[in-house]
Amino acid sequence: MAEGYQTTVHDQVGGRSVDSDQTCADDNVPGRKGKRCDPCRTNGRWNDAVVLCKTCQQHQCEDCSMNHSLNDIIVGHDLQGLEEDDQRKICIKHKQDLNIYCVDHDEMCCGLCGVMYHKQCTEVTDIKCEYIDKGDEKRIQAYRSQVKVIPEQIDIMKNEIDKLFDDFKCNVVHSTRDAVKTESKKIDEEKIVRTAITKDTDTTLATNIDDFNRIRLFTKKIRQHKNAISKQESDKHVLDFIFEFNKTLLSFIQSGDDIGSLHIEKTFTKATSGSFVRPFMLRLLASRNLKQGEDGDKEPVISGLDFLPDGRIVAVDNWNRRLIVTDQQLNNLATHLLASSPQDIVTTSDQKVAITTSSCTAVVNKREDVEVK
């Protein structure tokens, strides 16, 4: 099983391999175990790489990797040792993880290789083990987070209930104290009145006059204080402090029901096999401005695009009725004039493409098969 997909198909231009300037064949020199530094190789030097920068998607030597600590723009890039790189299995061509397995070719490749070179294969499988493991770890972390939140929610509810009881208790205590205080004040006032009456009558009895006049005077004093004494006697009462809980609360407590419930539900997710959909990073490989041709053509409008198995790109220009063939760097290799305005294009076999076109006079779609040499 190959560790990296490396095409041998030629692009019919001088017999040159489509990626001859990008292959890593020089990294496989007999007796050499290390990888070449990509920035150095671009500048014509051949230094051994010591790290892989996942952000730059480059193998780098020690000197080149030092730029990550000197240049503020690239500080914080994800640098990994080559031992980790070897474990992860990097595609030689595209410097991406080998996460696609082609059963037809019995080899591993990256997602970009799968789209470009294995689209016509009958069975291409997305290797998900690493992502399943990571997904399981994330789920366990999510479970732990949820489990951690539940006791916190119970504590919040408990605190709210405790607050209700504390407030209720505080109100009850204040109310009873106020009632006792009011009663005590009233009793003290009545006692003062009775003390004054007793003192007044005692003074009368102690008057140094004859008994007849003393009794007459004492009787007069009693008549004067009769209303005050009668009012105190008629206002005698006893306070009864009657305490009750809310009947709904009592019914709930007496019912024996749990104060809450916990339900654990399973939601099954459907696994998708053979899919290349996964988190990815977009990187600009090539771009080209489309301009109006000198022979009177309109400004191009590309309405469809696809890849040939050898890596070449085929596109259709709707306004100028043209089929355009380019290499991966968008260099024009060939142009074909079409009979009708093309709508879209798709590769159907090794060198053939199917183009959908529409008539200018009627809304009728038809298919035109073209062989690309």
Rank of each mutant, 00 (worst) to 15 (best):
D188Y: 08
D188I: 02
E189K: 07
E189T: 10
E189Q: 11
E189F: 10
E189Y: 05
E189I: 07
E190W: 15
K191T: 09
K191H: 14
K191Q: 12
I192A: 15
V193C: 09
V193G: 01
V193E: 02
R194E: 02
R194V: 13
R194L: 13
R194H: 07
T195Y: 07
T195N: 12
A196S: 13
A196M: 14
A196R: 11
I197Y: 08
I197D: 00
T198C: 03
T198D: 04
T198W: 01
D200M: 07
T201C: 07
T201R: 15
D202K: 09
D202C: 05
T203H: 13
T203Y: 12
T204M: 13
T204N: 08
L205Q: 07
A206P: 01
T207G: 06
T207R: 12
T207A: 14
T207D: 04
N208Q: 14
I209W: 03
I209S: 13
I209F: 02
D210W: 07
D210S: 10
D210K: 06
D211N: 01
D211F: 03
D211P: 00
F212M: 06
N213C: 08
R214N: 02
R214C: 03
R216Q: 05
R216W: 05
R216G: 02
L217H: 03
L217F: 03
F218S: 02
F218M: 05
T219S: 06
T219C: 05
K220Y: 01
K220N: 02
K220T: 05
K221D: 03
I222W: 04
I222N: 03
I222L: 13
I222V: 14
R223L: 09
R223W: 08
Q224F: 14
Q224C: 06
Q224Y: 10
H225A: 07
K226S: 10
N227Q: 14
N227C: 09
A228N: 13
A228K: 13
I229F: 10
I229Q: 07
S230F: 00
S230R: 15
S230V: 15
S230K: 15
S230N: 15
K231D: 07
